[in-house]
Design a protein around this nucleic acid. Sequence first.
DNA 1: TCAGTGATTAGG
DNA 2: CTAATCACTGAG
Length: 177
Amino acid sequence: MAEIIRLKREFFTRDVLEVAPDLLSKTLAIKAVDEEIRRYVISETEAYRGEEDKACHASKGRTGRTEIMYYEGGRLYVYFVYGMHWMLNIVTSGKDNPQAVLIRGLENFPGPGRVTKILGIDRSFYGEDLVTSGRIWIEDQGVKPVFKTGTRIGIDYAGEFWKTKPWRYYLDYPWTI
DNA sequence: TCAGTGATTAGG
DNA sequence: CTAATCACTGAG
């Protein structure tokens, strides 16, 4: 029986191309308003890698919104898009290397907008530290993910080179084939 | 296929 | 200040 371990700083300070697939099958734990802890399995992620990555928000440099991406890995980068949806991202790698993983889906709750809706994520989670926070963190249940890769969604503006990078990772369930 | 909805950003 | 854009979703 594997031990359940809360992910520490070292997990998040690696390159985003290692962290994004490693987050699959990990459990996102969050304290609801009633103080009850709810857990969800991460099923789909996407990697956004530095200022050179034209699909990454940090490609425009340091701004008020992207500031947190320049912190050491483990923080949350939360932003609002299309006037309706909050997006949940996890900052990775070291200081001044702006990378982040978009949480695109949880088991039974596919879609980045649905993820934040079910979790109750909003502006107040911007900058939250997954390593020290008392209301949100990630656990390793000891499950090895079997996953597939694909191109990232919704980044047509990024140009052919960045658009075609296989930086989307998703659990490959036998019953979805 | 397409409207909805508002924060963020670049530019004047 | 203005206007364009947007790492999306749900209804039809």
